[in-house]
Design a protein around this nucleic acid. Structure first.
Lengths: 210, 210
DNA sequence: TATAATTGACTGACCGATTAGTCAATGAAA
DNA sequence: TTTCATTGACTAATCGGTCAGTCAATTATA
């Protein structure tokens, strides 16, 4: 049993928005925007629908607030990547490893991706935010690193406008997990997956360089 | 003006299910399952809601029928791949090229992927079908080809349980298009994309083999 | 060929259930 | 006693699904 400190009304009230946001995340992920009932979100918190509407004007606003609330943690990662040192290869591998953890392994980010794919039509702002805050910085970073590697002679000359390809296994893992969850036989071993991913990325499939 | 042949009642009736299925595709893609109104589907065909229910028992059944209707064309591709010849490299490239066309470039397949990601929870059968008919055969095929390549000495020894990685750029292209549609600056040039994809896959990023 | 009888695809008004959003009343904390 | 976070009953609107009725196309009859 958790030692549930008795809270003052002010404390309770200041916690409510986040409790509601967390509950909203679960429900919106489970049922999508239209399919989610505000009352189910309230139930999850242990309050009634009326309370939800004290804190959020409409279902739409609640949805948007929820997305914003769960979009933050990603920013830190972008900071870390700036402070890396070593060869271009080392830094590229480090970043891709971090991205894998953040995008493929973190449930919140994964489910956020689901919502972006599923509800993007209805919330164009969501798409724009997602592009500006997630995709664009990642691609820019990877682009830059590849260019550095090419400049230093570590990497072959490679068209930089296709950095998607380099990041692809990460997004693919995310999407396959979204679709098949635990249905697909073994959840692949992280270390082994990354080892193969990086090996293929750096050395390619062919037995001999031509 | 299209030369609209006057149809007999029987002809008209035999066309209806497909007209409705096509309209359902557009609406379900646009609004998701819960968000779609059966009446909007009917409007799109130019009939009323009642007519839709003449042909399909429930909204759920209509949704499932629509998915099945649009899932067929993929089967052909799997046939083609069986009849390829040449080196493992050539055949792998051929298959990946075909997959790219079918998965990333074909709108129906792409939007089907969206629905699988978005509505998978609600329709477990859908996921199973999708896995059995799409993912599984593809991965199996790619696995087999890689093993052949390894056996013949063309490819390096590579753990075969990670064929996802090889296919990843295709799924990633699909998903990025689903999210950003035409919002992302230029729709990348297909030939150039595939050239880079295959080059990276076969030769890797490093300047020298080590 | 002209006309009447029949069919059946389609309609649209309707029902019941659901749910977003409201607000006067409540009751516990301060 | 006062305050105010919470309630829960309420409304208004939406939407899946139904079905008796309609009318144009078809078939039978004269």
């Amino acid at each position: 049993m958790t030692a549930q400190k008795k809270l003052t009304r002010a404390e309770q009230k200041s916690l409510r928005p986040i409790q509601i946001l967390d509950a909203a995340f679960e429900e919106f992920v489970r049922c999508g925007f239209t399919g989610t009932r505000v009352e189910d979100i309230a139930d999850r918190v242990g309050v009634t629908k009326g309370t939800v509407y004290v804190y959020f004007e409409t279902k739409e606003k609640l949805f948007e607030a929820m997305i914003n609330h769960f979009s933050v943690p990603f920013q830190e990662l972008l900071g870390i990547t700036a402070s890396l040192s070593g060869s271009a290869t080392d830094r590229l591998i480090s970043i891709l490893g971090l991205l894998y953890e953040q995008i493929a392994e973190d449930r919140a980010t994964r489910e956020l991706t689901r919502l972006v794919i599923a509800e993007g039509h209805r919330f164009p702002d969501l798409i724009d935010r997602h592009h500006d805050q997630f995709i664009e910085p990642i691609i820019t970073k990877v682009d830059a690193l590849i260019l550095e590697g090419v400049a230093s002679g570590e990497f072959r000359e490679v068209p930089v406008e296709f950095s998607d390809i380099v990041v692809a296994p990460i997004l693919t893992t995310t999407v396959l997990r979204l679709i098949f969850d635990d249905r697909r036989v073994p959840t692949p071993n992280k270390e082994a997956f990354l080892r193969t991913y990086f090996d293929l990325l750096l050395n390619g499939l062919l037995a001999k360089p031509h």
